[in-house]
């Protein structure tokens, strides 16, 4: 089971831009460890930066995958830069706005901004900026054979892709 770190795609411009959101909830168990109370310090639940990165990778990965109708196995190959300047707390919403910078047969580069909506402030605020590179696995296989089935955009992405109208309902990932 792939862990999904975005809840919904809210905007899509083919070959250009994709925006997704995630609601951060105290029901997510990892927040209880990140960070648990320690001695006199109270618990401090904040969204881990590594998972913010994964959320952007999923957002930008869908954008890259959509260009070839999800036939390519798009994998994150490089975190070019990631700057996260503000904590995201339970009860807040994260917005990932990914823009496709450059793409060819071998892979793609994306630039994305991360914002958060806080109900306490009733406003969006910038959180950071993440630049990524993706590789098309089958074009860079270096002698390694991968399964025919596209395990990158498998069943776990189905709800997201169909909900955003990026893939027709009932079409399987292998199709």
């Amino acid at each position: 089971m792939r862990w999904m770190w975005i809840d919904r795609v809210i905007a899509f411009e083919p070959r250009k831009r994709l925006v997704a959101v995630k609601n951060v909830s105290l029901a997510e168990e990892h927040l209880h460890q990140h960070f648990a109370a320690q001695g006199a310090l109270p618990p401090c639940p904040v969204m881990p930066n590594s998972l913010i990165l994964e959320g952007m990778a999923q957002t930008a990965g869908i954008l890259v995958g959509s260009v070839h109708d999800f036939r390519e196995k798009v994998v994150l190959a490089k975190v070019v830069s990631a700057v996260i300047e503000r904590d995201i707390n339970p009860g807040e919403t994260i917005r990932y706005d990914a823009v496709l910078e450059r793409m060819d047969d071998m892979g793609a580069s994306t630039v994305g901004t991360v914002d958060r909506f806080s109900f306490a402030d009733n406003a969006w605020a910038p959180v950071g900026r993440i630049e990524l590179m993706f590789s098309h696995l089958d074009q860079n296989r270096a002698g390694t054979e991968f399964p025919e089935e596209n395990f990158v955009f498998g069943e776990n992405f189905r709800t997201l892709l169909e909900g955003a109208g990026l893939r027709k309902a009932g079409v399987s990932s292998a199709g």
């Binding site: 070019v80 892979g107 580069s109």
Partner: peptide
């Protein structure tokens, strides 16, 4: 590393 070559190509183009 391998992906860096693609990164270099993209950056040179830009």
């Amino acid at each position: 590393e391998s992906i860096d070559y693609l990164d270099i190509v993209f950056r040179l183009e830009k």
